[in-house]
Design a protein around this nucleic acid. Structure first.
Lengths: 122, 122
DNA sequence: TTTCTTTATCGTATAATTGCGATGAACGAT
DNA sequence: ATCGTTCATCGCAATTATACGATAAAGAAA
């Protein structure tokens, strides 16, 4: 107890780590079925016009354009303007980097789970 | 062209697949640094009281409780009430299931990318 | 019983996301 | 130059997420 009658908390952290924030940001980009599907479509087509993607999704063109923008924001795809069209494709390096980050996260969790189980439940 | 002067679109899909929705839902649960950190904390502690988690995050107790609820919603953790306390722990099965789903998704994308590159750019 | 501790939930405020029609910019085709 | 196509952006509405103080419930401790 301290002088205010409240329990003494261990000092709280001020913010999240860069790794945690980046991972959350990647997850956010993947947190909508439309964006999950867009990446799948792009992987199958290599490159792809925006209009083709629109036709494969149950969403309006303006909405699809927004989802593409979000995927571009985190770097998972890139869009090159070709005249009136825009040619989208997967950024392979960025996808692999994101996947590594995710794998590292889950692998660490699994390893820690096993370790702490042994320690605590001996 | 059709009679309305617009280009004939291939029939649009009505909704997203269950797999796409589930994957997006998992990603949504991981789309906040607090929830990324909570899973890491739980993996290190095996089991953990809510209060301990609160002390390790830069957030109020009510907010942390909400994040725990979201993780519970998608099944990644479980919380067992022990008297006035609640004991949280990772749901190992659910985490592994989620990880498999994610791995399958990224592996498919990578495979398709290589295939379509060969096909299109021969 | 009364008090303390712990945690979920309520209420509320603010911000972010999602979705779409309308518009405009850029370009090719006529 | 005019028209048609393609796509990003704007403006708006509706929904959802985030955050936190206050409160309530449930039990432990006194």
């Amino acid at each position: 107890m301290n002088d205010k009658g409240t329990s003494v908390a261990k000092s709280k952290i001020e913010e999240f780590s860069q790794e945690e924030s980046r991972l959350a940001d990647i997850a956010k980009a993947l947190s909508h079925p439309a964006r999950i599907k867009i990446l799948k479509i792009l992987s199958e087509m290599d490159v792809c016009m925006c209009g083709e993607i629109v036709d494969l999704l149950p969403l309006a063109q303006a909405t699809v354009s927004q989802h593409l923008k979000e995927l571009k924001r985190v770097g998972l795809i890139q869009g090159d303007i070709e005249g009136p069209k825009t040619c989208y494709c997967i950024n392979t390096n960025s996808i692999n980097e994101a996947y590594s980050q995710i794998q590292n996260y889950f692998d660490t969790i699994n390893k820690e789970c096993k370790r702490s189980c042994k320690t605590n439940k001996k």
